[in-house]
Design a protein around this nucleic acid. Structure first.
Length: 290
DNA sequence: TGCAGTGTTGCTTC
DNA sequence: CGAAGCAACACTGC
């Protein structure tokens, strides 16, 4: 799924494209994506409302409406949000992205929800695995739902001090800590591995075993890797695409993720190994990550 | 054919 | 009781 850099890229793009637009109509062929309220209630509540804000918290996209309610979209593993004027057609009862359109990548062809917006715009949710979640929350519910997340790693409340204090009180494997959204929001499986490689820390190390230098290095690399990926519009090793259906370029510069058996790019002579941490495929160099 | 998969949740087990 | 394990969600690609 999209992690922080991908979700942030999408959020920024959406802000430039749909802010101020009015939602005219919502259609779906998979009502189960709507996790509360149900689709009929959702569409009745949002139709006619104007989009007043688009923000991100953790891996959630938050679209605030003139009714003061907020549409929450979590893309999970394979969700895409596409913005288009007229490149989506119904073919044999299914939505299809026009073959001539820049959106026409095969991974964009799993459209299950369309928001028809003013200005002849459409926002489409394409999701191969149909794991995405769409919700509509009032201010209180939104606050509740967002209260479970730790600090945003690219905001001021995430500091080296915060990280040091966090790590010293747990002996959990460091990769588990990085993936725990209640401790730090937005890091997922790819960036956890990339951050640990850049910090030369073994993913299995107990969090409270890291020295000050290692914690400082980890802190710097969390910020550095996420910002680098953001500048390259995210990672498209698998299906990720932005709101115009285009790939991110961090995939080209990644060092370890999905590089099992390849030579370590730190030049230590080691070979990238794949293990499991928390059931997630984990890539690291046993030679230089200690 | 079989398994892994950029995520999260909720149930079960220890 | 908290932590960890694991299926579930649904489907494609290797």
């Amino acid at each position: 799924m999209p992690e922080l850099p991908e979700v942030e890229t999408i959020t920024r793009d959406l802000r430039g494209k749909i802010l101020g637009a009015k939602i005219l109509k919502v259609e779906t062929d998979w009502q189960k994506l709507f996790k509360g309220p149900d689709f009929l209630t959702f569409s009745a509540a949002v139709e006619g409302k104007e989009i007043e804000g688009v923000t991100r918290r953790a891996k959630n996209i938050l679209i605030t409406l003139s009714s003061a309610e907020t549409i929450l979209i979590h893309l999970k593993m394979t969700g895409h949000l596409l913005i288009t004027e007229d490149n989506i057609k119904v073919v044999n009862g299914k939505w299809e992205v026009d073959k001539e359109s820049p959106l026409s990548d095969p991974f964009n062809q799993y459209i299950h929800v369309i928001w028809h917006l003013s200005g002849n715009l459409k926002m489409a949710l394409s999701d191969l695995r149909k794991f995405a979640n769409i919700m509509l929350l009032d201010e209180y519910q939104l606050k509740e739902k967002m209260s479970v997340y730790g600090p945003e790693p690219l905001e001021d409340d995430f500091s080296a001090d915060y990280l040091r204090n966090l790590l010293k009180v747990t002996k959990k494997e460091i990769k588990r800590v990085l993936l725990d959204q209640s401790l730090i929001a937005g890091i997922g499986n790819i960036y956890a591995d990339e951050i640990l490689f850049e910090s030369k820390i073994n993913p299995l190390r107990a969090a409270n075993s890291l020295g000050d230098d290692e914690v400082n290095s980890l802190y710097r690399n969390i910020v550095k890797i996420l910002e680098l990926s953001l500048s390259l519009r995210g990672t498209s090793i698998s299906d990720y695409r932005d709101t115009e259906g285009q790939k991110g370029r961090y995939s080209d510069v990644r060092k370890v993720y999905k590089r099992e058996g390849e030579a370590c790019l730190a030049g230590c002579g080691g070979k990238i190994k794949r293990i499991k941490v928390m059931t997630r495929g984990t890539y690291y160099c046993p030679e230089c990550q200690k």
